[in-house]
Amino acid sequence: MNTAPSASCTATPDGSITFDLPLPPAQGHQLLLRLRPGKGQPERTLHTLDLEPTDNGRVRAVLGPAPLLEEGRWDVFLLRGGDAPRQRLRPGLRDLRALVDGHLRDREPPLAVRIPYVTTNGCLAIRAWLRPAHAEADGVDVTERTTTVGARLHGTSRRTGAVVRLRLRGGGGVVHTVQPRAGDDGRAFSFTLDHAELVAATGAASGVWDVFVQPAADAPLVRVARLLDDVADRKNVFVYPRIGVDGAVLRPYYTVDNDLSVEVKRPG
């Protein structure tokens, strides 16, 4: 790892990422993006980017809005051409300031998000999301009795018959439905979860509810998540309080994929 070059990167509001490497220009050098395969699975999806010389004697590669990166974690490698083994890159400065207020820009379908981040073993990688439509969670208001979530649709809009559906994970199709309230325009909405109702619906064991919105009566479900800023791993940063309800503990939280879920935990 110590000999791997470092790459700094800059993100722009449209999702483009420019990689900058302190290497002299050389023929045939490229960056390789690889969708990290599941354990024991072969590598399926790869993209290469050409490294072009810059004015200051370094090299640069641009990942434009196309191609659409499949949802997942993309590792970044340097290819030196020929038989040279590919090399992971160390992270340089990641200038992601253009992403910080990304939730303020309405997106067209499909929703494509990329956030450069540093893996647990210190390498540069990209977290990507690709969804036909998206509901961006904003403020989450937690009281003793209720949780109210404000959200905004991207790539679709709310029509008659819109409902919020919470699906019990591993619950064989158990769904808890609540009615959304309309916001300022066809995209904004909010909904309130009654803690006692949700705990009762969870049954005797612990459970996790994944939160979706169905923007119209016949429309596919859209996951409620928080994807439109610079935070690649939100789970331990955006932390909501735990509330005791009828002997259980309820807590809204973000999953490892930054999706919004509600955990209901029973003691023992």
Binding site: D141, V142, N236, V237, F238, V239, Y240
Partner: peptide, 8 residues
């Protein structure tokens, strides 16, 4: 919790 974040 909507405004203050411990970022690590």
């Amino acid at each position: 919790w909507n405004n203050v974040f411990l970022m690590g």
